[in-house]
Design a protein around this nucleic acid. Structure first.
Lengths: 198, 198, 198, 198
DNA sequence: GATGAATGAGCGTTCATTCAT
DNA sequence: GATGAATGAACGCTCATTCAT
């Protein structure tokens, strides 16, 4: 499909240059089509950007939803989710950047798309937290913890880009340990292991 | 100093409008000087922005360094660091926005400044982790965990911008609990408390 | 004929939107054909517009020629001509607008078509004037007076577009009185009446 | 004044090409300045056009107001007005075109400027007509006759451009004869003469 | 014969940047 | 040292015009 090829180019350019610095000229160049075609297929620059965000958000959420194992214990669920997340980021650097970085700086229409995705992600984590009988987490608490988790994931993913020798699983396990065990346990030498090794 | 007054204006305008939407005209207006002076003192728009980032990053690192209590137990050190961080963000919204939100979306020259700051923060936390006798963390492990923590802090701070009704202490405590106790303890109802209440 | 249907659409669109705002897309849409066909039949946008002007000018001149009664006294001839003119304008707003309003504002190629029509109209009136035995009008005099009369008619017709509540006959009679009796008689209360009431 | 020189260029270009076909590039070229200066001095294209119309309308009305002799008989007043009008048009072809032709085709903001001027012109003529005791002209009648007169003047002025050998006074006298004496008198050989020759 | 799909060229507008004073 | 005035270079967007089918 033609739209697909254009959006790929747009995600590439947006993630490299940011919304404002990206020019429709460059996007159409990268896509290998003329500017009028770009407008015919995807509308204005803002519409194009919003569409990019929506598409990438959906792709990532689907990757995570596919990877997660909903019938397992909470820790296993979180573990599978993180693994899926790092797997996706590892293979879709541009997607992730356009999705999160860029979208959060441009106000207005884009905030909606991002809020949508964050809400879905937060719901997932919040569900995990409130599943457990003993954790009477408020909505605000769950939300903020989810935000922290997402940020930790993002930051770690970025760090990972500078240390590509580490496999995705190791990086994911490291974050899993941080958020599940906490530094408190870690400094005591207690670590969390995937279920197969328990 | 003349530079000081110009930079204050720049941080104000950049944080309100973002890098691209901010115009040198407006910055010079707010600074109360003419545009040629602006260029004479701070160079190009990009240089000015990079300088802003550098200055604000330094201010923040200093605030944290001042707040942290280096002779205490690791958890107290972390806690005091987090409190200082969220305290700074709460009182310097403009600094923080220009620093983080804007810088992270503009490609190229600015990433360097941001990476610098993140590296310094990561080093601090990594030192904390390796201080502890029982944690045989490799340098790589410590660094990645620190990266995750810093990211969680950044992300939570950003979330906080949209929920200003929460007091700084509450937000900091929430992150402290997450990273010290871990979800594993949290779902069991175990929480971390500041030293005065132990 | 295919051309006929296209030109009808063109006159409609041109008169509604003006030359520049009218797009070949809209004209082909209204005509119910594809754009390549539009170009095949009528050439460029400028050619199409010129053709519209020519067609509508011809239609109008024919309407007037049909309405005029050449064997009557000069005043009756003039009267019947004016009546025919205002009758045509009243029933062909679109024609008239595209013809006059639009054509007169676009420079260059279109002026020719308009000048042609005006020349033909002026010739008719000039002939009327020189018919009369007692008027030793030079060719130049007759032509200039005719030009003035035609302009008065055009302008009054345009004024009429903004005051559609007036019947065609009243407007025509008003111009007839002006050009036949003159202000000199009008301010004395002398008016001209159509022959049936003499 | 810099504005003056820009407006002269704008009137020139607008009158040659029409509102839409005129480009800001060409106007700035003709004015001998850069496009940003054009925008700095006169605002957007629409504002520039409106300003042109306003200026030219004012110039013309002043020329006529200066030429007219308000304490004379109605016919002398009209005569002096017509003479002033043709004098102005003879020396300001571009002004007149941008003023009348162009303004009447563009809707919206420009109509206001034009309506203003037409209202002032119509008032003058209507005052002439209603001055005379015997002419109980309604407002509508006066307005329409004034429109016709204006159109006749315009058309004759245009005809004049193709016959530049005729002096302004002769052309003005011809229109004076038409509108004061009417064809009825003219075909009988009765003509109107300026007061000095009566 | 007819068209869907494509584009070259241009427009109005803005802004970082720099002379002339 | 300081500035008002000026501009080169883009940018988002549109449209008359034409291939490939």
């Amino acid at each position: 499909m033609r739209e697909r090829q254009i959006m790929d180019a747009a995600v590439d350019v947006f993630s490299r240059l940011g919304f404002h610095a990206a020019s429709m000229d460059e996007i159409s160049d990268v896509a290998g089509i003329s500017k009028p075609m770009l407008y015919a297929y995807l509308g204005s620059k803002e519409e194009l950007f919003a569409t990019c965000i929506r598409r990438e958000a959906t792709r990532m959420m689907e990757a995570i939803a596919t990877g997660v194992e909903p019938d397992q214990e909470p820790d296993v669920q979180l573990w599978s989710g993180l693994r899926a997340f790092f797997g996706f980021v590892g293979e879709n650097r541009a997607s992730w950047m356009v999705l999160h970085r860029q979208a959060s700086t441009q106000g207005g229409p884009f905030a909606v798309e991002l809020t949508d995705m964050r809400t879905r992600a937060v719901s997932l984590v919040a569900a995990l937290l409130t599943q457990s009988t003993k954790a009477p987490a408020t909505k605000l608490e769950a939300e903020s913890l989810a935000a922290a988790l997402v940020g930790a994931g993002e930051s770690l993913a970025e760090w990972w880009l500078d240390h590509p020798e580490e496999p995705a699983g190791v990086v994911a396990a490291r974050l899993m340990n941080l958020v599940w065990m906490g530094f408190g346990d870690l400094v005591d030498g207690n670590v969390w292991h995937p279920p197969s090794r328990r």
